[in-house]
Design a protein around this nucleic acid. Structure first.
Lengths: 192, 192
DNA sequence: GGCAAACGTGGTCATTTGACCATAATTCCC
DNA sequence: GGGAATTATGGTCAAATGACCACGTTTGCC
C-alpha cells in the first residue's frame, strides 16, 4: 500500500525504504468525517498524527464561545498539539476536521520507539519543529503588526490552495478579525 | 570564573561539570550598552547567545517605522533569531539591548561542534526549541483572541518581574496595542 | 430530491482604537 | 549637577471595527 505518506517521506527525508516501511507499518489509519473532532480541549494528545488527505484545524475557544484558529493542517501536514503531546498534559486547544479526512497516527510509545531506532526520523522531527517555530513566529508578527487587510492579503498569498476550501468565517477566525471585517475587505478589493 | 551561566546549566540540564566547563570555555563575553544593537534586520545571525544579565528585545519594524516586539530576553534566556541562525539566512528581525547587558556568544561552527560532541547539550537545545514553540503559540492565541485589556492582564501575570524594567511604549509594542490604549487600560484599573 | 443547516452579504449603530498634539515629569548621560 | 532626551498622561477627533439583525443563497446530508 502506498498512502502518499511513503512518497512524502521519500521526498522529504533521508529515510531508507526499509525505515519508511517500518514507520508506515507501525501506523494506524483513521478516517474523520466532516466536523469530527480529533482532540478536545482538556484531553491529552496521545498520538502523533500525519494528514493523508482532507483538512484539519487546530483552534481554541474563548469565553463567548467563538473560536480562534491557530493553524490549518491540509494533506501532507503533521498535526498535533505539540505541547500536549510532548508533555502528555491536557491540551488547551482542539483539533477537528473541516473536510472528510484521512490521517495516520502512532501512539506516543510507538513513535518514541521509532525515534529511538531511526536517526533520520529524529532529523526530520527536528526539522518539522524548527519549521513550526518559524511559522508561529512569523504569524505572531503579522498578528501584532498588520492591519486586517494586510493579514488577509498575506493569507491569500501564503494559502492560495486553501482559500476555496474554507468558509469565510474560518478564515476570519484564523486572522483574528470578524467575519464582517473580512467581508468588507473582500468587497473593497473587488471594487478595485 | 562563574558567570551564573554555569549555575544555570547545572540546574537546567544533565551536563557534567566537565562538559559545562567545555561549553563555557568555548564562549566569548560581550557587553552591550543601553540601546545597543546585537542584530539588525537583513543581517545573518551568526552566533548562539545566552543572556547573563540585563534585558534584550527581539523586534520587527513595519513600514511606518514603528516597532513590534516578539520577545523579551532577560537574564538566563537564550536569545537568537532561530530561523536566521539555523539557516544562516538574513534575519527579518532586530535584537537590541534595553538595559546595559552582558551576553555570552558562540559562533555557529563552535556551537555546532559542541552539539556534536555533547548529547546532553543537544537534549537541552531541543527542550529550549520546544519551549519556544509553545511560547510562540500561546502568544499567538492571545494575540488573536484577547482584548487589549486581557492582553495586558496576561502580561502582568506572566512578566511581573519585567513590568518595572520596561517603558510602557515597549509593553504596548509587545502587546500589539497603542500606547494610548495601554494608558487607558491602566487608568481604568487604578480607578477600580 | 428535498429539507434543514450553514453560509455570505448587507444595513445600522455604538464603541473602541489609534492618530495627532501638547505638556509635565522623569530619566539618562556627559 | 544640569541640560536634553525620553517617558507618561491627557484631550480631541476621525476612522475602523464588532455586535446585532435580517435575508437570500448555497451546501450538506438523509
Amino acid at each position: 500500500m502506498n498512502t502518499g505518506f511513503e512518497t512524502y517521506l521519500r521526498n522529504n527525508s533521508h529515510l531508507t525504504d526499509d525505515e519508511i516501511a517500518q514507520i508506515a507499518g507501525a501506523s494506524t489509519t483513521r478516517s474523520l468525517s466532516r466536523n469530527e473532532s480529533l482532540l478536545q480541549e482538556g484531553q491529552v494528545c496521545r498520538h502523533k498524527t500525519y494528514v493523508i488527505s482532507g483538512l484539519l484545524r487546530i483552534y481554541g475557544l474563548v469565553a463567548d464561545g467563538s473560536e480562534h484558529i491557530l493553524q490549518f493542517a491540509p494533506e501532507a501536514h503533521w498535526t498535533l498539539d505539540a505541547e500536549s503531546y510532548d508533555q502528555q498534559t491536557p491540551s488547551r486547544f482542539n483539533i477537528a476536521a473541516i473536510e472528510r479526512s484521512e490521517v495516520i497516527v502512532w501512539s506516543k510509545p510507538v513513535f518514541d520507539r521509532l525515534l529511538a531506532d531511526i536517526p533520520a526520523l529524529r532529523a526530520l522531527s527536528q526539522q518539522l519543529i524548527a519549521r513550526s517555530n518559524h511559522g508561529s513566529r512569523q504569524r505572531l508578527f503579522t498578528a501584532l503588526s498588520a492591519t486586517p487587510e494586510e493579514k488577509y492579503e498575506e493569507f491569500v498569498r501564503t494559502h492560495a490552495d486553501l482559500q476555496n476550501r474554507l468558509p469565510l468565517h474560518m478564515i476570519a477566525a484564523y486572522l483574528g478579525i470578524s467575519l464582517k471585517t473580512l467581508t468588507r475587505i473582500r468587497h473593497a478589493q473587488i471594487r478595485r
